[in-house]
Nucleic acid binder design. Sequence first.
DNA 1: TATTGTTATACTCTATAACTATA
DNA 2: TATAGTTATAGAGTATAACAATA
Lengths: 139, 139
Amino acid sequence: MEKWNQSYGFLLGKVLQKMETNFVEGLSPFEINARQYGVLLFIEGNPYSSQKDISENLQIDRTTMVSHIDHLEGLGYVERTRNPNDRRSYSLLITDKGKDVLDSRWEFLIHTELEVLAPLSDEEKQLLKELLIKVWTTL
Amino acid sequence: MEKWNQSYGFLLGKVLQKMETNFVEGLSPFEINARQYGVLLFIEGNPYSSQKDISENLQIDRTTMVSHIDHLEGLGYVERTRNPNDRRSYSLLITDKGKDVLDSRWEFLIHTELEVLAPLSDEEKQLLKELLIKVWTTL
DNA sequence: TATTGTTATACTCTATAACTATA
DNA sequence: TATAGTTATAGAGTATAACAATA
């Protein structure tokens, strides 16, 4: 056992890196990156959001959001309509096409994650999730 | 519970992000980033390595390694001497100053990690480490 | 005046290709 | 010819500042 294996950060990083590499590869046919997948997921869960809403919640700069939404709109995954109550902002909605991508890649994501966690038993996987949620909910 | 909390990747990412933010802040007075800290750690554990050795082991491009080592050498954290057996390559060693930074930041790293993991009991922390090592050793 | 979105611009991090010195 | 290291250059991804439209 080398020194750096004693760090939770290095261990978490190694496991996450493996999951991310696989997931990003699976996204490439749909021409979006992991960040944009996260934006799409947020819009599905929070319909009629503005770009600012997403920026604040996902902690992405608002100028960066412009290009993410430009990209997702260009692919037909989201739709921009002006908010009638405040014409400065947009009302963003996921399209049916966007929802298809989201659902298909969600199943893929869960599948690749379980592949990486294959060395663990079902009980251990459940335990890992509970520990992570316990940490996360008090972040 | 929202949908994305059901993904191990998102949960791992959230926990890791919190650890990394704190760690990177703690590194800034020493003018190195997390990647360069990893390089320093490798050189300590593998003295007389060449830049190529580090590139291959840490999966960092060799042209990127040049600037990392330039930077660490400029700060007096590592020493380049030619390998007498093959004068194309360097023999890299960590300096006393570099070792001081490494040790001080190692303690800091462990401390910040435990801060993030504070919601877990000692037994749960130990369990988490065992689960991560079990996954990592079969990656 | 303040806010949402936009554009132009710059900065960081990393990768590609061509070069040098050694082997 | 091949390899370790270097340089110049370009490409992502992101952030800062100034601007337009709307409040």
